[in-house]
Amino acid sequence: MTINLTMAVVLAVLYSVGFYLLMQRSLMRILLGIVILGHGSNLLLQTAGGPPGRAPMLGSAQPEQMTDPLPQAMALTAIVITFALTTFLLALAYRSWTLLGHDEVRDDLEDRRIQRLERRLAESEEDGAEELEKEATQ
């Protein structure tokens, strides 16, 4: 099985744009990133399924002429999962908009605490390195 170069480029662009949007702060951009990643996943599954062929029913064609039904079933499952995640994120964005007036995701308090701790550790390491340099020069 070979893949078309155009399809590989389209898949790379879809995944790149999807992950870029997923890393943004706005819930609507995150939602668009999830939708684009879902489309990329569906395209990847259909591309991996190979070229089109006959319906996979016994007695209608030779087995080597039939298409593989597994990628199609997985694509349908991916569509359902993307739809469910899209509706959930739409509900979150609407709730955030009604309560806060914006859909921006704020930093978690635990993240801020960890950042302060890392800064303190880095400063103490710098102070320790300066003391070692002073001792070495004396």
Results as ranks from 00 to 15, higher is better:
residue 131 E to T: 08
residue 24 Q to M: 10
residue 48 A to V: 09
residue 34 I to N: 02
residue 24 Q to T: 15
residue 22 L to R: 12
residue 74 M to A: 10
residue 79 I to R: 06
residue 72 Q to F: 15
residue 92 L to R: 07
residue 13 V to T: 13
residue 72 Q to A: 05
residue 46 Q to P: 00
residue 105 V to M: 01
residue 120 R to N: 09
residue 111 D to S: 06
residue 3 I to P: 02
residue 1 M to T: 08
residue 36 I to T: 13
residue 53 G to N: 09
residue 55 A to C: 04
residue 32 L to W: 09
residue 118 E to R: 10
residue 75 A to W: 11
residue 87 T to I: 08
residue 95 R to A: 13
residue 129 A to H: 05
residue 31 L to N: 10
residue 97 W to C: 08
residue 126 E to S: 04
residue 55 A to L: 14
residue 30 I to D: 00
residue 69 P to A: 06
residue 80 V to P: 00
residue 74 M to I: 10
residue 5 L to R: 11
residue 130 E to F: 03
residue 2 T to K: 11
residue 17 V to G: 05
residue 42 N to Y: 08
residue 100 L to A: 05
residue 121 L to C: 06
residue 6 T to I: 09
residue 99 L to W: 04
residue 84 A to F: 12
residue 97 W to L: 15
residue 5 L to F: 03
residue 72 Q to W: 15
residue 23 M to D: 03
residue 126 E to T: 14
residue 63 P to H: 05
residue 130 E to H: 04
residue 134 K to F: 03
residue 64 E to C: 05
residue 80 V to T: 12
residue 29 R to H: 06
residue 51 P to T: 12
residue 78 A to H: 00
residue 3 I to T: 14
residue 120 R to K: 10
residue 70 L to P: 01
residue 120 R to P: 02
residue 89 L to K: 02
residue 9 V to H: 09
residue 89 L to F: 13
residue 13 V to Q: 04
residue 65 Q to R: 02
residue 74 M to L: 13
residue 43 L to S: 01
residue 7 M to T: 13
residue 133 E to Q: 06
residue 94 Y to N: 04
residue 20 Y to G: 12
residue 96 S to K: 14
residue 67 T to M: 15
residue 46 Q to I: 07
residue 51 P to H: 01
residue 50 G to E: 03
residue 122 A to Q: 11
residue 61 A to Y: 03
residue 41 S to L: 15
residue 58 L to Q: 09
residue 99 L to K: 15
residue 10 V to M: 15
residue 43 L to T: 11
residue 12 A to K: 11
